[in-house]
Amino acid sequence: MPDDVDADGLTVGQVSARLDVTVRALHHWDEIGLARPSLRTAAGYRLYTAGDLERLHRVVVYRELGLGLDRIGAVLDDSTADVPAALRAQRAQVTERIDRLRRLGDGLDRMIDAHERGLLLTAEQQAEVFGPRWDPDWPAQARRRYGDTEQWQQYAERSASRGPEEWRAVADAVTDLDRALADAMDAGVAPGSPEADRLVERHREVFASFFPLTRRMQVCLVRRYEADPAFAAHYDGIRAGLATWFRRIVDAGARAHGIDPDTATWE
Rank of each mutant, 00 (worst) to 15 (best):
R224P: 10
G9L: 02
L56N: 06
A140L: 14
E116L: 01
R24V: 00
S16K: 08
I259H: 02
A25N: 15
A17G: 08
L56A: 12
L120C: 00
L242T: 06
G9W: 07
E201V: 01
H257S: 03
F210N: 11
R40K: 13
D106R: 12
A240G: 09
R97K: 13
Y235E: 04
P139L: 10
R88V: 09
Y146M: 14
Y225P: 07
D178E: 13
A232R: 15
D77G: 03
A190V: 11
A182S: 12
D228N: 15
T41H: 10
I112T: 13
L76W: 08
P2N: 11
F231G: 01
I112S: 06
R36L: 06
A127S: 11
D109Q: 08
L10Y: 07
T265N: 11
T122R: 00
T22I: 11
P229T: 03
T244G: 09
G33P: 06
I72L: 10
E157G: 13
Q90F: 09
F207V: 07
G51S: 13
G44R: 11
E267V: 13
P191I: 07
E157L: 13
G163F: 00
H115Y: 06
E195S: 09
W245H: 06
H28G: 13
R71V: 14
I98G: 12
F210Y: 14
P191S: 10
V83T: 07
R255W: 02
P229M: 05
Q14C: 07
Q141F: 03
R158A: 14
D228C: 11
D82K: 04
G13E: 00
D8S: 14
A127I: 02
E96A: 15
A173W: 02
Y225W: 05
V5S: 03
P139I: 10
E150N: 09
T95G: 12
I238N: 08
W266K: 08
W245R: 07
D99P: 08
D106N: 13
L65R: 14
A169E: 15
A81R: 04
T244D: 10
E226D: 15
G258M: 06
H115P: 05
V222Q: 12
Q126H: 09
V21F: 02
F207W: 06
L108P: 05
S209L: 02
W152N: 10
D70K: 12
G237C: 04
Q126D: 04
L67P: 11
I259G: 06
P229V: 06
G13N: 02
E116G: 00
R216C: 01
I32L: 12
R198N: 03
Y225F: 13
D148W: 09
A264S: 12
E166V: 01
S79I: 09
F210I: 12
Q153N: 07
D172M: 14
D186G: 00
F210D: 08
A50E: 13
F130I: 09
L87T: 03
L177Q: 07
G51Y: 02
